[in-house]
Amino acid sequence: MGSPLSDLGLTASVLAAPMAGGAGTPALVTAAARAGGLGFLAAGYKTPEALAGQIAAVRAEGVPFGVNVFAPNPVPVDAEAYRRYARAIQSEAEPYGLDLTAGEPVEDDDHWKDKIDLLLADPVPVVSFTFGVPEPAVIAALRAAGSLVAQTVTSAEEARLAEEAGAGLLIVQCSAAGAHSGTLTPERLPPEIPLTELIARVRQVTDLPMVAAGGLATPDDVAGTLRAGAVAAMVGTVLLRTDESGATAAHREALTDPARDRTVVTRAFTGRPARGLRNRFTDRYSDGAPSGYPAVHHLTSPLRKAAAAANDQEVLHLWAGTGHRHATAEPAAQVLTRLASKL
């Protein structure tokens, strides 16, 4: 593959993206590796203990894998805007017996230090970061421990910052990607630049190898990104309905609903730009949602969990990229092998 990924013994150029919140599972990561590629465990929203358990589960399978970590890049929420938004969405919470207006904003770092300590004490083949670029000392320590360090970037400027910090691989993500954008400036919605054009812009400022991500769902999509200069393609949404996915039943069903033919980028669920299927919640609250992560994420989390349990697709975050129509119910290895068929 002509990249640091070659040292991991990969035989396919299609990788499985990390999907925080439950959709990504050790079984999905293992399936990606057995198809010749690489999968990423999502450290986001997990305790360090839960992450350690998943690392142990994948390591026991004897396959290469990566771990993706949310790097701190807090967007403190305005307290009054937070309270105003909590009152606005309370009507959605009442059917579930929830009161979203009583609490104060929660601003945490998702156990950042403890997760880095874990990855230094128990190194994994690849560590990737999103949301922020870690301090160079953190990246240097992980590299010294034997991990390849990858950084999600959404622009040429971010790619420069990642290279300066010491990253060895770039995950170049365009706005077509499902779920959260990796943008370092979440107060602004990411521009809608085609992935191949974004790859070209990044190549103008750095020679680091690139993995292409965002909206990739067909063999032609994948082949096009490699022709544009990427060393591999990363897919996520197209794996949400696979046998190994941990996506909820409501999420899986929504992906097949012919009425849900549009995705939107919204801050309504987490206070940070993320792409998902349009529903009542995005229609009602996207315009009024404040910028503020992780406070808005914590505010809506109980509501989203209740909606998932009740199969309420109108209140649930239905993360999906622009290629969501290609998500199929079959083993992940079949999906990944098909996507690599034109390479």
Rank of each mutant, 00 (worst) to 15 (best):
A162H: 04
E164D: 15
G168Q: 11
G168W: 05
L169Q: 10
L170E: 02
I171P: 02
A176K: 09
A177H: 07
G178C: 10
S181A: 13
G182A: 09
P186D: 00
E187C: 05
P190I: 03
P190A: 06
P191W: 10
I193N: 02
I193M: 00
I193Q: 02
L195G: 00
L195H: 01
T196N: 10
L198E: 04
L198M: 07
L198K: 04
L198Y: 05
I199Y: 06
I199Q: 06
A200F: 01
R201Q: 15
Q204F: 02
V205A: 07
T206K: 12
T206G: 07
L208E: 06
M210F: 07
V211C: 07
V211W: 00
V211M: 04
A212Q: 08
A213D: 07
A213W: 06
G214P: 12
G215I: 10
L216I: 14
A217L: 12
T218A: 06
P219R: 05
P219Y: 06
D220C: 05
D221F: 09
V222Y: 03
G224A: 15
T225Q: 11
T225I: 12
T225G: 01
L226H: 11
L226D: 01
L226N: 01
R227Q: 14
R227W: 08
V231I: 11
V231S: 02
A232M: 02
A232V: 03
A232D: 00
A233F: 05
M234G: 01
V235R: 02
G236Q: 12
G236V: 13
T237K: 03
T237P: 10
L239S: 03
L239H: 05
L239T: 07
L240A: 12
R241W: 00
D243W: 08
D243F: 13
E244W: 00
S245C: 10
G246L: 05
A249C: 06
H251F: 11
H251D: 09
H251T: 03
R252C: 15
R252G: 12
A254T: 06
A254S: 15
L255R: 04
L255M: 15
T256A: 15
A259C: 04
D261A: 14
D261C: 09
R262G: 04
V264M: 09
